[in-house]
Amino acid sequence: MVLISGFISEDYNFPINEQGKYHFSEVVEIPGLDKEQLYENGTSFMKKIKVLNSKKKYLYTDIENLTLKSKGSFMVYKIGSIKKSIAGAVEYNIQLEFKDGKCRYTISSFTFNEYKRNRYGKYEPVKGKHSPLEMEVSSLNKKEWEKHRQVVYEKTQDLIQNLQSDLIQYEEPKTKKSKKNDNW
């Protein structure tokens, strides 16, 4: 377990690492599955992760070291809107490492990318401006920022749940279909 105990931030129990950064990491045991099968399951999971409004492919695969890396994002919304209106997206890095019966996940580097209304009435990311989620903001904007953190915390928990359920997927070896032998 890589979680640094004793360094838990007050906000929604975000685990933090030695650098003071939000950092989810844990070793998950999945007895009965070898590293190759886990790597395959992890790859399927990672393919479902994407950064919204980006065409870039972030998936990095290293089959030799059984490591996968990618980048994803969660949408966060403005508070007090009649209907949810986009405030921005929080991007994160995710890394999976595999051994027989084990997977270590690391989810880190959470950065907020503000969305702004464009000339066509749609919201789009402000290019080139990313604020670390750990950043303290002024009291004027604290409420919304705290809400974003809470949403990110909850969505990260959901992501971990999804990862765990994807990791235990196991494809049953296809049994050979018996062929009817007429010359019996």
């Binding site: 045991e29 999945i30 599955l33």
Partner: peptide
């Protein structure tokens, strides 16, 4: 460390 047990083969 968290242990996940395989359910009946999925």
């Amino acid at each position: 460390m968290k242990k996940l047990f395989l359910p009946i083969i999925v």
